[in-house]
Design a protein around this nucleic acid. Structure first.
Lengths: 204, 204
DNA sequence: GAGCATACTGAACGTTTGTTCAGTACAGTG
DNA sequence: CACTGTACTGAACAAACGTTCAGTATGCTC
């Protein structure tokens, strides 16, 4: 959409989109050069190598996520349940509908490289802190294993992003879309507050 | 472990392992041939092309999952809560610890190709049926949106497999391992039966 | 205006890729 | 024994890959 002036910006922009769409290995430097209307040499000039470009795109996405996280954390005034559950929604809600960021995030998290691991670790720390605050405020129950519970919440939240297409075909609405997000959040909040299973026999 | 007699079997076995480890694009037919101690020509002879081999491995994995699913479904005698939540555990518990299957499943589900989509759709149908049975038996509450609730359970369950490494580094125990599985299942069952969040103000 | 750094081009290079194919080994059939 | 089909080899090939590099254009500094 936005017309980048410099070739460098265009390369990063195109690479981000193509890497997200097809995966790192399935995109050649010539593809990127053609789409960005630059020569192959310019990519090497700015980033040294294809791997260097990848690192640059990774850093760009992670920086963007840091900004989104800050905004989302600031936007949460008190410890309310609805915020904690769809933290991912709160992040991605700030993005345009056709953004390649969710798809790139998916590759980043599941490629196993250190950048993705660091991102998830940060989110886990955030999830632990958030659950702690909610428990202190009485908005959440103190579970037997708070660390695992926080991880459970974070993983489920992240899974919504990673598998949003599968969810879309399963329930008929993309949870990254407007109506699908509401429906998914409603089901999640309901499950997290009232539970789903009924206890067999409580032996106190 | 098992010594395959025919070159064909060895090719599929090696391809499954390498595809799971490094991804489809990052593995060359020469890698597979070398590891399987066959010539490159034999791969073309049996499978036509690298893509043909991929389809064969996909079919092999999906067939294996069908068997695992049947076994898991049969193994569940009545509609008990503990079974529904960790359905994935029940599947993967049948596999050896170092099996490449979970990693391959991850690629299959998230690559976006029809084989993975079909697999997830089948699981969703299974999840819907299971939740239905549990609700009928009184083991589960009837939620406002059963379809979304079933999808929610399935996605969370699947996410444990997809992100087990991240979970391992977050809580210090791999949920695909023995002790980690118990800890994760405990946290999940606790969340699903007693909830995590406390309702703000019930207005009846 | 000379000098120099920076943005950028595109042909060329060497490597690796998936695929092809002529040929070997061998078991089963008549 | 001759014949046929199947498993299998490995050299060869064209295409695509990431990288290199000599060269052009432009704007800033002295």
């Amino acid at each position: 959409m936005a017309a980048e002036t410099t070739g460098r910006d265009r390369i990063v922009d195109v690479a981000l989109r193509l890497f997200a769409q097809r995966g790192h290995d399935a995109v050649s430097v010539r593809d990127i050069a053609a789409e960005g209307k630059v020569s192959v040499g310019l990519i090497a000039h700015h980033f040294g190598s294809k791997e260097g470009l990848r690192r640059e795109v990774d850093a760009h996405v992670i920086g963007l996520f840091d900004d989104l996280t800050d905004t989302a954390v600031e936007a949460s005034p008190g410890p309310s349940g609805a915020i904690a559950d769809s933290f991912a929604s709160l992040l991605l809600g700030q993005l345009p509908p056709a953004s390649p960021i969710p798809a790139y995030l998916r590759r980043l998290v599941l490629s196993g490289d250190p950048a993705g691991r660091a991102l998830v670790e940060r989110w886990h720390a955030l999830s632990v802190a958030l659950l702690d605050r909610m428990t202190a405020a009485g908005a959440a129950r103190a579970t037997a294993d708070p660390e695992a519970t926080a991880a459970f919440l974070m993983v489920n939240d992240l899974a919504m992003i990673l598998m949003h297409e599968h969810i879309a075909s399963a329930i008929g609405a993309d949870p990254l879309g407007r109506d699908g997000a509401q429906r998914w959040a409603a089901a999640a909040v309901d499950a997290y507050t009232h539970g789903i299973f009924t206890p067999p026999e409580e032996t106190p």
